[in-house]
Each structure stands twice: as C-alpha cells, then as structure tokens.
C-alpha cells in the first residue's frame, strides 16, 4: 500500500518545513501580472494612435459622423426591434430529466404539491425577475424516462410534457405569477422578514390570458370539466391508459390546487407571517378581507 498521498502528504510535509507565516507565503507563479506600460516597439512608439489626423491629435470627429454623408444612425427613423420587450416574458427551462433527478435525489418531495416556490427552494433552479423571467418552462428533455407521480404547477408546458406527467398518474397545472409575486418567491425567507402582507396574485395579462384559460394547456383558470376531457384526449393521442385519480390513495394531494389569488399553499393573501414569534397576523377588517379574496 502506498504511503501518504495528496493532502495528507502535503500536511505531513509541512511538519518538517518552517512555520507558515506572513513573510513566507506567495501566490502561484503567473497569478499577478503587473500591468506594463507601452515602451518601444510593442505597445509603445505611437501607442496605438496612428499617424497625424484627428486620431493621433485626440481631436476626434463626433461618434457616428461619416464625413458628411447621411450617417447610418440617422438613416432609419424607426427601428422597432425592442418595442414592448419589457412586456415580453421569458420562462427559463427546467427539463423533465432534471425534475426526475431532483425527485430521485430527494431534493423535491413528490408526496407534496410541487410549485415554483418549492422548485426555487431546492437551490438548483434560479430565475431573474429583472430579465423578465416569469417562471418555469417544463421542457420535454427526458420525457421517455420520466416516471414520477407528481402534482406540479408550472408556468409553461407543452403537450408531450403534459402527457408524460399525466401518463404516470400525476397532475399538471399552468399558472401565472405577476412580477411582485415573483419577487416574493425569489427569496421567501427574506420576504417574511419584511413584514409585508402576502400579496394576492394578479390575473394574467391579455397576451397570455388565453393560454391560462384553456384546458388544453391545463390553465389554472380553465374549467375543470374541460380539463378532464382534455386528459382523455391526450391519453388517446399519445396512446396510454389514463390512470384514475379517484382510485389513487394520493388523490387529495394530486387534486390540491391554489386559488387564483393565492400565492402559497395553505396561506392566504393578506396575512403577515412573523418568523420570530412563529405567528400569523390576519387582518380583521372586512374591506381588507374582501380585497384580498376578490
């Protein structure tokens, strides 16, 4: 058997070497590259400014000026490339393969409903609200190996993904979270320390309202009867037998849904959570209760 190797060898070597102190430590060779001034042939001489003209004399023409002709930046009066970009949402993807991996490695608990909050809390999925990210887009990578039975709530899902989840006896819903709610979800621990009441979710804007109201995409505003109809349609399209949720012992968990105004499971909007006192403060006034549940 070989002697000490690696770290243990290094640590035992240190026993014979002088004490590591402030005067005998240095960084790896090549770590500090001192900035060199341009001198001579390379970097020096004219220092990248060329010969004569406005360039060398540091008296440049204004940016974009093309010595008289109609410059490029003035030729086009209307360039609507980014018009409305601040209203267009992105959905960073999460593949079914990743989701299955999270469940296999016990990062997500399939015995409880999975929603954006639980996915973000694993620490393995992140989104940036400032980049107009609006939630999870469940992709179909790994659709063939997906075997988990889950009640999952995402923001965007395509047909094969919905089929894969329902084939395994789970349920999928697509729901919308507005920007304020997304800021809350990003860091729920921090949100609770602010003492702000849990906000109510707003309805989706007009460009995605149809998506969240249609049963085909399992929108959270859709008619449940239509959804069960669509489940049958998908099962026939993709050729699997639709498992009956009623027979399932996990039926209660699988059919648990959030109210369209609700942000977290079990907690109503308008409540203030106090982590220090381990208490929930609920408003008593009628107008507030009405407001938050409207």
């Amino acid at each position: 058997m070989a002697g000490k190797q690696g770290k243990d060898l290094a640590l035992s070597m240190l026993r014979t070497l002088p004490r590591v102190a402030l005067n005998n430590i240095r960084n790896n060779p090549g770590a500090n590259k001192p900035s060199k001034r341009g001198r001579g042939q390379h970097g020096g001489d004219k220092h990248g400014a060329g010969n004569k003209g406005s360039g060398q004399r540091q008296n440049f023409m204004r940016t974009g000026y093309e010595t008289g002709n109609n410059p490029f930046y003035l030729r086009f009066s209307y360039e609507p490339y980014y018009k409305g970009h601040h209203l267009r949402r992105e959905y960073p993807p999460l593949s079914l393969q990743q989701l299955q991996m999270f469940i296999d490695t016990n990062r997500l608990d399939p015995s409880k409903p999975i929603d954006l909050v639980s996915i973000v809390n694993t620490g393995l999925y992140d989104f940036k609200v400032e980049w107009k990210h609006a939630g999870v887009h469940l992709t179909d990578e790994g659709v063939d190996n997906f075997e988990a039975k889950v009640n999952i709530e995402v923001q965007w899902a395509s047909e094969p993904v919905i089929a894969a989840i329902e084939k395994n006896g789970g349920t999928i819903t697509t729901a919308y979270y507005d920007i304020h709610c997304l800021h809350v979800i990003k860091d729920v621990d921090r949100f609770f320390t602010t003492g702000v009441p849990i906000p109510r979710r707003l309805l989706p804007p007009s460009d995605c309202l149809e998506y969240y109201m249609s049963a085909e995409t399992r929108g959270y505003l859709a008619n449940p009867e239509e959804i069960s109809c669509e489940r049958l349609v998908l099962s026939q399209k993709y050729g699997y037998e639709l498992p009956k949720i009623e027979d399932n012992p996990n039926n209660e968990m699988l059919t648990q849904r959030k109210d369209p105004r609700q942000l977290f499971y079990g907690l109503e909007p308008g409540w203030v959570v106090s982590l220090k006192d381990k208490a929930i403060l609920k408003p008593k006034a009628d107008y507030l209760k009405e407001f938050y549940s409207s």
Binding site: L11, L14, V20, I25, R26, N27
Partner: peptide
C-alpha cells in the same frame, strides 16, 4: 482541519 494546505489561497486571503 485537514483540508488541502493551499498556500496560494492563504496568500490571496492575506493580500
């Protein structure tokens, strides 16, 4: 207490 004795990291921290 038996991590790799990275003198370069120690130097970076001191600096």
């Amino acid at each position: 207490y038996a991590a790799s004795p990275r003198i370069d990291i120690i130097q970076e921290n001191v600096r």
